[in-house]
Design a protein around this nucleic acid. Sequence first.
RNA 1: GGCCCCUUCAUCUAGCGGUCCAGGAUGCAAGGUUUUCAUCCUUGUCACAGGGGUUCGAGUCCCCUAGGGGUCACCA
Length: 460
Amino acid sequence: MVVTRFAPSPTGYLHIGGLRTALFNWLWARKNSGKFLLRIEDTDLSRNSEDAMKAILEAFDWVGLNYDEEPIYQSKRFDIYKKYIDKLLQEGKAYKCYMSKEELDKLREEQIARGERPRYDRRYRDFKGTPPAGVKPVIRIKAPLDGVIEFEDGIKGKIKIDASEVDDFIIARSDGSPTYNFVVAIDDYLMGLTDVIRGDDHLYNTPKQLVVYNALGFKPPKFYHVPLIHNEKGKKLSKRDGALDVMEYKKEGFLPEALINFLVRLGWSHGDQEIFSIDELLELFDPKDINKSASSYNLDKLLWLNAHYIKNSSNERLVKLLKDFGVDLEESDKIDEILEATKSKAKTLKDLAAEIKKILTEPKEYDKKAIKKAFKGEAKELLEEFLEELKRAKPKTKEEYHNILQDFVAKKEIGFGKIGQPLRVALIGNLSGPGLDEAMYIIGLDEVERRVEKVLEEIE
RNA sequence: GGCCCCUUCAUCUAGCGGUCCAGGAUGCAAGGUUUUCAUCCUUGUCACAGGGGUUCGAGUCCCCUAGGGGUCACCA
């Protein structure tokens, strides 16, 4: 049985890098009919994990990720960690260190001044004397003094790190609270994890966690360190990089399946395939196909994917989605016409809403260049004549509008643009937009006449 | 700086020693369809970081150099 997890720290919202990691874990668990667990890494009590959890679940819900069992909060498990700390202490695998923060800082400074790598000098590792008064000790774990710590990474292959790189790191602070690398190892083991897929930035934590596994006699899971997503500047995505909050994408009019498809293709691939449904991913995903190198966030591709998914969405769904963007088509009897006229122009739902409003609402102003371009020569007279034609024929269907236009062009022996351009400016205010027959049909005869009359006044 | 990881078009990537004068996608450009715009279709543009090996043969294996990234807390 495959058991994976997503273990964010409570930073307030789920960002897209985190979502990708979660997605990889989720896919792998689901593909293998395993379990996908959630855990909040809130050993640092100053952060609000309730709100963070809410934000994460909101995002999960939007993109369609679910999880098994109850989420685990590390802040509620201190007694468990305490037990293991005592055990290590008793077995002599961990020890109390009475070095104060100030002393440590001083040591570090000296080491840096000497050009050495700053690290704890293990001075209390075998300390037998009487401890200094008034110092609350931290607990440090005994890391191996020599040799190499190695493990097989599911993505990068064999990773070897010299034991000298891992010092006797702190597993419990002077206030008794346990630290990250210690609790991660314990929980990953206790939760029965078989596969840990996490960001590359955790690569260095793995040997430390292995020290814990080793001291406790736990069997470690398989690790996969996925390369990070870089921003446009080639650096690790950080909070300063703008739209990182997953929910921000919802607000901007992205479809969850577009985001998922985009994210999964950042680092993972399956031959030349670009478009993946969730079902396909569930079929095809394997962490062994994840790239070794970092990838950059590229908005153009996301936009393209989003446009693709919008074009392929049912009108029924779009109507529902559009409500969040100020367009309510629920009562309209021309839903299909409206959407077919606008769908292909939109990269986001926001765009789509704007396109629709462009047709549905009378133009507030006319694009100056468009006016100039459209109303050259006899354009005004032609438009006036066309208006008369409309009033006379009273078209009702899209086909009738189409025929009126065609007949008019034929009768006057003009190119379509001669009437098309001024008409379009009259209807939507500029030169690009939906087909005129469908636009007029959607707008309705009375309103079409009004808009035409209005533009005619405007150019007096 | 130490250590670790990485390096194919601008970007995401295929490639797992010969079928690659390197394929797909996005972007960009041109053309076609069209009632403008968009869609769609076609074509084009653009890359194996550099240098050494190994091999009959290297984008693919090894080494070095360069570049990029990550990480070095009583944060997670």
